[in-house]
Design a protein around this nucleic acid. Structure first.
Lengths: 338, 338
DNA sequence: AGTCCTTGTCGAAGCGCTTCGACAACCTAT
DNA sequence: ATAGGTTGTCGAAGCGCTTCGACAAGGACT
């Protein structure tokens, strides 16, 4: 293993000079710099991370807490994680992967040991038990998701309220008056994951403004669950012509079931999904959808965090504006039959 | 920040004693141990990771290289990553997330800097460019996936050859004589990702032994691609009654298309999928499938790695035996019509 | 010619931990 | 009682780096 001292000797300078060449924190003459860089290359030197962390009290590592559950939005989580990792690298940081399993302890462990300089927390619940610990430390952190109380926290999320509103709006504009909302699994609501409730919120209040009716039903993924849910919905509101689906694994079953019942999409029924673009494009009917901008969220989170680490950067909530892409699953409401 | 020295002072012992209490590398009297542990608790002490790494030349971090692509098997990748992270924690390791983006450089960087003690590499190609670097370092590593030349490497993977064989076998036993294999996207084959070719291999040789015909077609995911592929297959082999699908995003389209053409599953056509159980269960027909044991693979990989780090543990290839679960998508071949 | 900066480099201290050798204190066997 | 082992604890060195103050050497002023 090559050390700083060896590089210094090889280049005929002192260790500190090499260090300053590396960090650029003091000016070094061109000649010396080149000699040092040459030696670094020749010897294949890599600074030792541990020594660096010890001496500078900075690890250049960002911790990322991902949910342990794989029951929802897995591709989105993955995409965020990848975006975080690649963006972090461009800022000179590596990413430490923490699962939710340890819970708040993980926060303590990582902050306490100086393993990471900062932390990104995904899958935040409205009243997340990790929040006190995040507020209690001076280690910067960014949440992906929105808790109930955001004071003293930096959060990045899709504006799910606007997302909900956008969906109804689109359907209402097309003349739909009776809209069913197929939501996430009941467990998601019980857990008080904010995004689901916020979507519903935006959806309902916009619906009221526009004078359209909504009916919300949580739904587990899969065919069987969707079949039951759909039957109930149509039983209660036979005139339903618009669907908003916020559950990746319910969307394809819904399409199949509608087809099976002889309801054509988009002629008889319109469907708007809240899902990644890839899902929307690969479905049996190309879905009008509001995308979940996973990459952007991951990137944003890292950039906020790096700003905080660099001293500028404030606590604030960044809500990404949703965008609805019209595809083949929505169309004008059919003429009223009854 | 609390340091070892402060704990030592608080407990009235020397720093080294505290260190030995923590590591258990020398015997400490019960009384002293308790006093130290008490002080640790009272002061809320957490050992500094950097200092530890520097002094012991061990970071207690395992690097995990995940693919940058999100074009295939994302849930599987995610599940593996989570399994790796949680298993690693039970052995006292944290996980550093590296994307494939940096390629071989990441290997050099991480080994060179002592950031991680060991490395798990996913999405290995047959002739992966990272292999030379992995062989060249004495840092232990485990691959998830199988390259062409496994000498000097430890690998963990599903036995895809046996998986392929198992699929044909099941269909052949049910009387199917003409089997279509719907594979991954062409890009996967071009990249020479081993698992796809190995599956095909096992599938074909077993088919030959059993005297059944196979026709393999790669296929992008989604409806349109699947429609084209299916049409071609049925054109070339109208008598096809069995399908093996190794592409998550082709399976649902295939089922829909078959249904649409009036071919009932499993009465007219049988379908075996190679996919995670969750996908198999949530499909419109509960699929007979060979599961991809993501958790097991992640767990195995970490355990191999830890064994190596502990000195025992050898280079070897661990192939997990596939298991076929019979569900509702396969049945006896229909009586020959022609 | 002397003073004052600026620029480039060095030496040394120290980050918080592990680990090795030393060594009291005690126990056991002669 | 003495030699020989254990057992439990300590002190000190050192891991590889960063960073601070010091200080030559030269340039720009009076």
């Amino acid at each position: 293993m090559v050390t700083l001292a060896e590089v210094a000797q090889h280049a005929g300078v002192s260790a500190s000079t090499v260090s300053y060449v590396l960090s650029g924190k003091r000016s070094i003459s061109g000649a010396t710099r080149q000699r040092v860089e040459q030696s670094i290359r020749e010897l294949g030197y890599h600074p030792n991370a541990g020594a660096r962390a010890l001496a500078s009290s900075k690890s250049n590592i960002i911790a990322l807490m991902i949910p342990l559950r794989t029951d929802m939005y897995v591709p989105v989580m993955m995409e965020i994680a990848i975006a975080v990792a690649t963006t972090a690298r461009t800022h000179g940081y590596d990413v430490l992967l923490l699962t939710g399993e340890e819970g708040p302890d993980a926060v303590r462990r990582v902050t306490g040991s100086g393993l990471a300089d900062a932390m990104i927390v995904m899958d935040v619940e409205l009243d997340d038990e990790r929040l006190p610990f995040l507020r209690g430390t001076h280690q910067p952190s960014v949440l992906i998701g929105l808790p109930a109380d955001t004071s003293g926290l930096t959060c990045v999320d899709l504006d799910f309220k606007a997302t909900g509103a956008l969906c109804v709006e689109h359907l209402a504009t097309l003349g739909h008056r009776d809209i069913a909302v197929i939501g996430e699994a009941p467990a998601v609501y019980e857990r008080h994951t904010g995004f689901a409730e916020r979507t519903l919120d935006g959806l309902r209040s916009r619906a009221q403004e526009l004078g359209v009716r909504t009916l919300h039903r949580p739904c587990e993924g899969g065919y069987d669950a969707m079949a039951v849910t759909l039957a109930r919905v149509l039983d209660e509101r036979p005139g339903t012509t618009g669907f908003v689906v916020q559950n990746e694994s319910a969307v394809e079953p819904l399409l199949a079931l509608l087809r099976q019942q002889g309801r054509a999409v988009p002629e008889d029924v319109s469907v708007v999904a809240i899902c990644p673009d890839q899902v929307a494009v690969q479905a049996s009917v190309r879905l009008t959808s509001v995308a979940i901008p996973a990459q952007e969220m991951g990137r944003h989170a890292v950039e906020r965090l790096v700003a905080k680490l660099d001293g500028h950067g404030t606590d604030e909530v960044v809500l990404i504006t949703p965008e609805l892409t019209e595809r083949a699953s929505t169309g004008p409401a059919p003429a009223v039959a009854s």
